[in-house]
Design a protein around this nucleic acid. Structure first.
Length: 835
RNA sequence: GCAGUGGUGGCGGAAUUGGUAGACGCGCAGGACUUAGAAUCCUGUGUCCUUAAAUAAGACUUGAGGGUUCGAUUCCCUCCCACUGCACCA
């Protein structure tokens, strides 16, 4: 284009161009929103990354780039976009990596941070670098500790004895997520269970709110289902059965009370309070039963996760010698202890109905207990249940159940509940799968839990550290590794740190030496980002004005691996803060988009498989523009794809073609040729729609079609239209499009800089979208026989189209004189002759 | 076992509400340009089959089988496979 005043190379050189614009963008603060007075704020957030051992891999880049494209699209649609980045660098993951390479986590953190941010600089995202944060920064974890204290003050944090995972080989406590199928994820040693005193958050107080609110979230259905399943609300009844010859009762939770006429035994968990009392000899039963129960419980409680899995479905148990009375029919039901019953669900005691529950059936077979059918099987089957395959857990009609006989299960259930509740034998009850959130970690690399235990005055107990003394800084200790005895590494902190004064009585007090779970760090970070740099950033966890402006998050983008843990914790914290009047909303992420996973050779990328793809070399070779666009072209963003080397060369080729076409076939004086004009506006429409839906692969395909036409000898585009096209590609290829855009716009580095990334998203002109001609299909018996290009007016009228078709030689060939039995006409689309 | 997601050419994938299956790209084959290569460009490319110098014609085809419909990748039923999450939850 001779009229352009500056020259441009004939090929796109990504390295120099990327470096050039990175600097110009930073200087012009292109990606820094006005946090206090934004225009149409849009909070574009990607899930908090932790620095992994391998650094950023291509899967991370896929996540970030896809999210960034959405952010850039919103920015061009007139929003002030906040797209922050930071590092979830505290926690076991980082600590383990430091241990592995023999470095101190505090030192390694700085190395990882530098490397990670350098990599993130390269991928072409429009991050607001001014608002970054790291969870191990005392300025950040000061507020994580503050959050803990608020939980404590509201009665939502408590300390209790709990079982922890213990790896005898690593001599350390493990988090649940480090236990895979009952073995330690690192050394594959069988994990044991140990008792320890732990801090918990009462997330279960909010089980119902967490469940109910799911309905109003625009989230992937799969994640919503996972959360519902995890919360696991079950409505049922608790039935209190008197224990024969005692004054005691045993309470069982059941969701199927209508089957109670078929109940033939009761089973309690080894951890059940009655079982423990028997073991201690506090219940009057025959000596042999007491010994048997004690032996069984001792064994069961020692059992590791691994053994429990191995023993799965092999039913064992011990008879207590006690009987529960089923008042419905005054039958005596023997009470057993068995480890297939879980202590943590319901009441830890189960009433056995072997004909209608597979586990109960298996147990009844082993213990030779009676089996009574009370619900008819398929086709009204009333025969006795003698085989596993006959166990009837589905709906049917009641039998052998006195006043329930003949009723359908659902009806019978309502009736028996009313009956038993009225008699005072049962109460309605709800049970949840969700447990309280275990916060304590006997590890080093995390925020110290900000609590002190008074030594001087025992009645003071646990006291929170006064808020003006926060943060409780993590002391530097050389021997940070987990100790062999399950105690926290911070026990070895200097006395000056360990001992302090009790905020209540002023006597000596000892600090809590556990640190908090990493998931606590990430449960509130989205509130901190928009607050950074505000007037109140140093005095409040989050700035109320900024929060009002920016929260809730406009789009939260991340993988499904956090379907329950992180997303549930963040919701819980937000709901609590809302309840305390600190937030005006009760859900942090009304909209969540779950991206897919990038796999390599059909498998998830992992270091052990040796298939981790590092994006660095590809960025060096092809540039971020090409890699980003290639990744997005791989498949639908919510499905991920398989990373292969051969496809990326094709994308590189296309990028060069775009460059060449823009440079060679743009005119400063002539208008866009008509066919191309039409194509451009179709592409604008398609891209606008697809980017809004995260359908990146099809948006790219449509741009390719446009460039293919543009590249044709007879086509050329005006400068203005070419700039419009570049806008469509800008979110994907931010560097190249900026270079070409500024070249077309004749910006030479002087005067006001207006980035393509701050320009307006193109609007499709409906004038160019009007279809004059359509492809009209002629079918016979539903099969396509011919396609005609006809004017729209013809295609809209059956009469006109039939007149037209009769004039066509092709129609005669197809019909061969046959007379249609029936004619189906779809305006603008097709006509189908049924013969 | 339960739940979810998916299954379309040699490969990744496309197909607004049931209406031309295979867009776009990769790969492959042939050709042009070139001393040669790189780069670029052009043409072809689901399978089978018939006829043929060529043009062309036909049948089949969206994991398998069945159903609804003038018409099904799309809706319904049965089954198979892959991946993911939960898993003795009463």
């Amino acid at each position: 284009m001779r009229t352009m005043k500056n020259t441009i190379p004939s090929r796109y050189d990504h390295a120099t161009i990327s470096a050039k614009w990175q600097k110009i963008w930073a200087d012009a603060r292109v990606y820094e929103p006005n946090l206090d007075h934004p225009v149409d704020p849009y909070y574009n957030l990607m899930m908090f990354p932790y620095p992994s051992a391998e650094g950023l891999h291509v899967g991370n880049m896929y996540a970030f780039s896809g999210a960034d494209i959405a952010g850039r699209f919103q920015r061009m649609n007139g929003h002030d976009v906040l797209e922050p980045i930071g590092l979830d660098g505290f926690g076991i993951h980082s600590e383990n990596y430091a241990m592995k390479i023999g470095k101190h986590p505090a030192e390694q953190a700085l190395v990882s941070e530098k490397h990670f941010y350098e990599q993130l600089q390269q991928i072409g995202n429009g991050f607001a670098w001014n608002e970054r944060l790291e969870t191990y920064d005392p300025e950040y974890y000061k507020w994580t500790q503050w959050l803990f204290i608020q939980m404590f003050k509201k009665g939502l944090a408590y300390k209790a004895i709990s079982k922890v995972n213990w790896c005898p080989s690593c001599k350390t406590v493990l988090a649940d997520e480090q236990v895979e199928d009952g073995v330690c994820e690192r050394c594959k040693t069988v994990v044991e269970r140990k008792d320890a005193k732990q801090w918990f958050f009462r997330i279960t107080n909010y089980a119902d709110t967490l469940l109910k609110n799911i309905e109003k979230l625009r989230w992937p259905e799969a994640i919503k289902i996972a959360q519902r399943q995890w919360i696991g609300k079950k409505e049922g009844v608790e039935i209190a059965y008197p224990i024969a010859d005692t004054d005691e009762k045993i309470t069982c939770f059941t969701t199927r009370p209508e089957t109670n006429f078929g109940a033939t035994f009761v089973v309690i968990a080894p951890e059940h309070e009655l079982a423990m009392r028997i073991s201690r000899g506090e219940v009057e039963i025959a000596r042999e039963h007491q010994d048997e129960v004690k032996t069984y419980c001792d064994q069961a409680l020692k059992k590791s996760e691994q053994q429990r899995l191995e023993d799965a479905r092999k039913k064992t148990g011990a008879f207590t010698g006690l009987y529960a009375i089923n008042k419905l029919n005054n039958s005596k039901m023997p009470i057993y202890v068995a480890d297939f019953v879980l202590a943590g669900f319901g009441t830890g005691a189960v009433v056995g109905v072997p004909a209608h529950d597979l586990r109960d059936f298996e147990f009844a077979q082993v213990m030779e207990l009676p089996i009574i059918r009370v619900v008819t099987g398929k086709n009204g089957d009333t025969t006795p249940v003698v085989d596993k395959n006959q166990v009837q857990e589905d709906d049917g009609a009641m039998i052998n159940s006195a006043f329930l006989d003949g009723l359908e299960v659902a009806v019978a259930s309502k009736k028996i509940i009313e009956y038993m509740v009225e008699k005072g034998w049962a109460t309605r009850s709800t049970s949840y799968h969700l447990r309280d959130w275990l916060i304590s970690r006997q590890r080093f690399w995390g925020p110290p839990i900000p609590m002190v235990e008074c030594v001087g005055t025992p009645s003071c107990g646990w006291q929170p550290v006064p808020e003006d003394q926060l943060p409780v800084e993590l002391p530097y200790i050389e021997e940070y590794k987990p100790m062999g005895d399950g105690k926290s590494p911070l026990e070895k902190a200097p006395e000056s740190w360990l001992m302090t004064t009790c905020p209540r009585c002023g006597e000596t007090a000892k600090r809590e030496t556990d640190v908090s779970d990493t998931f606590l760090d990430s449960s509130w970070y989205f509130l901190r980002y928009p607050s950074l740099g505000s007037k109140t950033a140093s005095t409040l966890a989050f700035d109320p004005e900024r929060i009002k402006t920016w929260m809730p998050v406009s789009a939260y983008i991340g993988g499904a691996e956090h379907a329950v843990l992180h997303l549930l914790y963040a919701r819980f914290v937000t709901i609590a803060l809302h309840e305390w009047g600190l937030l005006s909303f009760d859900e942090p992420f009304p909209f969540l988009f779950g991206h897919g996973l990038i796999i390599k050779d059909g498998a998830k990328m992992s270091k052990s498989r040796g298939n981790v793809v590092n994006p660095d070399e590809y960025i060096v070779k092809f540039g971020a523009d090409t890699l980003r666009t290639y990744l997005m072209f791989l498949g639908p963003y919510d499905q991920g794809g398989d990373f292969r080397d051969d496809g990326i060369a094709g994308m590189e080729r296309w990028m060069q073609r775009v460059w060449r076409t823009v440079v060679e076939k743009t005119s400063a004086t002539n208008p866009t040729t008509p066919a191309l004009q039409k194509k451009l506006h179709q592409t604008i429409q398609k891209c606008t729609h697809d980017l809004g839906e995260f359908h990146y692969n099809t948006a790219i395909a449509s741009m390719m079609e446009c460039v293919n036409l543009w590249n044709d000898a007879s086509e050329s585009m005006s400068r203005e239209d070419a700039m419009q096209f570049l806008c469509l590609l800008a979110p994907f290829a931010p560097y190249m499009t900026e270079e070409l855009f500024q070249w077309l716009g004749c910006w030479d580095g002087e005067g006001e800089f207006r980035s393509i990334h701050r320009s307006n998203w193109p609007i499709a002109n409906p004038q160019f979208l009007v279809q004059n001609d359509v492809s009209f299909v002629l079918q016979m018996n539903g099969k396509t026989k011919a396609v005609f290009t006809v004017p729209l007016t013809t295609a809209r009228s059956q009469e006109r189209i039939e007149t037209f078709l009769q004039s066509q030689e092709k129609t005669k060939q197809v019909l061969r004189g046959a007379v249609p039995k029936k004619t189906v006409f779809v305006p603008e689309k097709l006509i189908n002759y049924v013969i």
